[in-house]
Design a binder for these strands. Sequence first.
DNA 1: CTCTGGCGCTACAATTATCGTAGCAAAATG
DNA 2: CATTTTGCTACGATAATTGTAGCGCCAGAG
Lengths: 112, 112
Amino acid sequence: MAKQASSRSSGVRGSRTGRPIMALLDLLGRRWSLRILWELRDAPLTSRALRTACDEASPTVLQARLSELREAGFVELGEGGGYSLTPLGRDLCETFMPLHKFAERWSSKNGV
Amino acid sequence: MAKQASSRSSGVRGSRTGRPIMALLDLLGRRWSLRILWELRDAPLTSRALRTACDEASPTVLQARLSELREAGFVELGEGGGYSLTPLGRDLCETFMPLHKFAERWSSKNGV
DNA sequence: CTCTGGCGCTACAATTATCGTAGCAAAATG
DNA sequence: CATTTTGCTACGATAATTGTAGCGCCAGAG
């Protein structure tokens, strides 16, 4: 795999291009990335609680995403356990929060 | 896998939950989804041009994502060829456009 | 008509990522 | 000490993605 170096955020597709947006788009375009940020949006969650919130996704991926997200500086693991958004992560979350409203508008046009 | 029914948007993880945001998050959390929307943001592109723009991603996935995005009503294929955003798709794109600025802010804190 | 060349799209094998289950060591609790 | 919960990992099975090649179609050039 060799995707994760150690403290660099460059296992991300598109980061080679020097366009940060590409790196971000790629990082967020991985399974459960967006979901994790979303579930953490207003309260810290333990890894298990997060797993439950994420429809019982496998801990393997969750842990991988959590590592990436932590490395990216969006998520952190508190002293007494429990994952939470960093200020930067919260900022990112705000950015695509309007997606919520959009989703509802979309689903009605989509026949649910 | 029976992911794509035909004209339903329900091969999407989370759509079972009845929470449209989950369905959207899952759809966008697939490889190249966000990137495709991003590349189409201000001009239509032919499938080849899109492939070039997407760092020569394999046509297999691109075509798959394009189908999903078309089914979701975000992207359409014009008469004379060329993919473009639908009004809805453009709307979605606007939603996460601030990500661009965020990405730059992020990359500077990240040491690139 | 024939020959390019671009279009959207597909086949297929190889490689990766993800899933699902089980379980670990460490810390907290009783 | 026994139990529970924490973050995290192993590993075989399954699904998604990659890379390369090429299809049928159509417009324009010769």
